[in-house]
Structures are given as structure tokens and as C-alpha cells.
Amino acid sequence: MPQHRYPDPDIAAVYRAIYERRDVRHFLPDPVDPEIFRRLLDAAHHAPSVGFMQPWRFMRISDSTVRKDIHTLVEQERILTAKALNEREDEFMKLKVEGLLECGEVLVAALCERREDYVFGRRTLPEMDLASLSCAIQNMWLAARAEGLGMGWVSLFEPKALRTLLNMPVDSQPVAILCLGHVEKFYDKPMLEQERWAERKDIADLLFENTWNNPCR
């Protein structure tokens, strides 16, 4: 048994948060406790980052007018996305894709400006800044689930329009609109799986050994 292994209940809690995490779209309007909100941000800030660059920036949207303006941007992109899906347009338009006007908190997760200053680990893979931010978002997501709160990642927006709306530096990059709040219940399965939009792939089909498409045995 590994020397640094957590006790069994702690391990079970980690896996439970992973398997019960959901991309939530349905929220209750109840406010999020400020202390819990701070813990979630701290969890995000303790994510790994390439070269320890910590490229994440989080903007709390507390102004209801700004929240509505963000919702308008999302709605515009929702319609354009539906049209781009061609034969699945009507099916997509029936999906609930965000909870911006209902959730207790809205955050915009972004990449910082002047990222070209960070070379360590990014000379050949500059997109590692995005990978680092994604780790921070996942930390927050799992912590939120453990705290009994739902979180949803909204990516339906035009980045330049959102950057302009929030007066962000031109070389920064908004990546995610995060809806956070209380829920009546968590989905039994990922919502898009419940709605039969897609199914979870078999891990055996995604795991290779030594060379591409060589199944891992």
C-alpha cells in the first residue's frame, strides 16, 4: 500500500466528487455563502500551472445589468451555434445551455495579459496556459460539488465581444462563463447524456499503448 495514501473515507470522497460532478444549468436563486465562495476561489488558485505562471483571472459579475448583457451575448451565440448544427438545430434549441439569470453567482474565467512573457513549458506548447486555467476551473468545480453547490461552464460567447464588455486588456482572453449556485438536485447523469445529445465513450476506445490506435491491453 502506498505510504502517502489517504484514509479510505477521504479517497472515497475524492472519487465521489469526481463522479457526481455535473455541468449544471438549473439553479435556485439563493445566495452563495461568502465563506464558501472564498474557499472555492482558493481551491481554483491552488491548481497546477505550467511554469507556475498562474494565468487564471476571475471576474465576479455582481452587477445585474452586466449579467444581463452577458446573457445577451450568450443568447446571440446560442442562435448562431444552432444554425451551424444544421439538421440538429431544432434539437439544440430545446436544450437549456446556461443558468445565467438564475444562479447565485456568475464568474468569468480568463487568461491574463502578457502571457508571452512566460516561456517555461510554453515554448512549443503555448496553449498550456489554457490547460492551466482549465485545471483551476476543475478544482473549483469539484470543490463546489463537495460543498453541495452546482456549477456550469458556459462557452457560448464571442470572446472579443465579452472582452470589450468587461473592459479587459486586448491581450487577455475570456475562456469561460461560470454559473455557480444552489440546486434543487443534481442530474443523475450529465445533462447532455440525459437528453440523448451524446453518450459517454468507452475508455477502452480512448486508451492506446506505445503507438496511436494501438489498444492498451
Rank of each mutant, 00 (worst) to 15 (best):
P2A: 07
H4N: 11
R5E: 07
P7A: 03
P7T: 00
D8L: 09
D8R: 03
P9I: 00
P9D: 03
D10T: 07
A12M: 00
A17Y: 01
Y19W: 14
R22T: 12
F27C: 14
L28S: 12
L28V: 02
P31C: 09
D33S: 10
P34N: 02
F37C: 05
D42P: 00
D42T: 09
H45R: 12
A47C: 05
P48I: 09
S49T: 11
G51N: 12
P55S: 06
F58H: 09
M59T: 10
D63E: 14
D63I: 06
D63H: 13
T65F: 06
R67D: 06
R67E: 07
I70M: 05
H71E: 10
L73D: 12
V74I: 07
E75T: 13
E75S: 14
R78T: 05
I79Q: 15
L80H: 14
T81G: 05
A82K: 04
A82H: 04
A84E: 14
A84F: 13
A84D: 15
N86Q: 13
E87K: 15
M93K: 12
M93A: 06
K94R: 15
L95N: 05
K96D: 06
K96C: 12
V97D: 04
V97N: 10
E98F: 05
E98H: 15
L101Q: 14
E102V: 03
C103E: 06
C103M: 11
E105P: 01
E105Q: 08
V108H: 10
V108S: 09
A109Q: 06
A110L: 11
E113P: 00
R114E: 13
R115G: 08
D117R: 13
D117V: 01
Y118Q: 01
Y118A: 02
V119R: 15
G121F: 07
R122M: 08
R123C: 04
E127D: 12
E127C: 06
E127S: 07
D129R: 10
L130G: 09
L130P: 00
L130S: 12
S132H: 11
L133Q: 07
A136V: 01
I137M: 04
I137V: 15
W141S: 13
L142D: 09
A143W: 10
A146S: 15
G150I: 05
M151K: 11
M151Y: 09
G152P: 05
W153T: 08
W153I: 12
V154C: 12
S155M: 15
L156N: 14
K160D: 10
L162S: 03
L162P: 04
L162F: 04
L162R: 04
R163D: 03
T164N: 10
M168Q: 10
P169R: 01
V170E: 15
D171H: 04
D171V: 01
S172P: 01
S172K: 01
P174R: 04
P174K: 05
V175R: 07
A176L: 08
L178S: 01
H182D: 00
V183D: 02
D188S: 12
K189S: 09
K189E: 15
K189W: 13
P190C: 08
M191I: 15
E193F: 14
E195P: 02
R196V: 02
W197N: 05
A198G: 00
A198W: 11
K201C: 13
I203C: 04
I203S: 06
A204F: 05
T211A: 09
P215T: 01
P215R: 02
